[in-house]
Amino acid sequence: MKGQTCGLCGRADGEVRQEYRTPSGRLTKNAVSYAHSWVLPAESCRDTTECRMKLESIQMEKQMNVHGQESRCFSVEPVLRCLPGCFPVKTTAVTVGFHCVPADSRQDRLPNIYDSSVDLWETAEAHLACSCTAQCASL
């Protein structure tokens, strides 16, 4: 079965540089981003048995100068975030790739962001544990 398997434990082919493949096939930069990509997100904050998180592309908080132009950058890898109505109680730093567009672009999100090229690697905050507000929990 060597080299003919795939999944969370890689391909079992002895090659180690490409072991961090997400479920979508994208290669992550580190083990933490890789592990987060395999978390099954919660569907709603109403279910207290769920972890109340989702995987989503995030926008970098600061604008960057990319290719000589002020740019807004979006992660090309999903980052764990709390669902709306919930807030993080435990976080960690993860290194993710970002794709950048001109700051004056009207786009708030990019179509097919996970298929976009990486312009830079930066640290982002991933949520590891979330708590719901009373309002959300009572919905």
Rank of each mutant, 00 (worst) to 15 (best):
A129K: 11
D115Q: 15
K90W: 05
T95A: 11
C82K: 10
E61P: 02
A12C: 12
V89D: 11
S57M: 02
A124F: 09
P41F: 06
L128M: 14
E43K: 07
V66Q: 10
E50M: 07
R106T: 09
T48N: 15
D104K: 11
N65Y: 15
T123K: 13
E122S: 08
G68D: 09
A42L: 03
S37P: 03
Q69E: 13
D13S: 04
Q18D: 10
V96H: 02
D13G: 05
C86I: 06
P111F: 04
E56R: 04
A31Y: 05
P88Q: 14
D104M: 09
T5Y: 10
S116Y: 05
V79H: 07
P84T: 08
T123Y: 12
Y20M: 03
T48D: 15
H36W: 00
M1W: 09
L120A: 05
A103K: 14
L80R: 11
C132T: 10
D119E: 08
F87N: 12
D115F: 15
L40Q: 00
P23W: 14
V32Q: 11
V118T: 11
G10W: 00
D119K: 14
C86L: 04
M60S: 13
Q107R: 05
P88R: 15
F74L: 11
A31W: 08
T92L: 10
S75A: 02
S33Y: 06
P23G: 09
Q18R: 09
P111L: 05
S105V: 03
E70M: 14
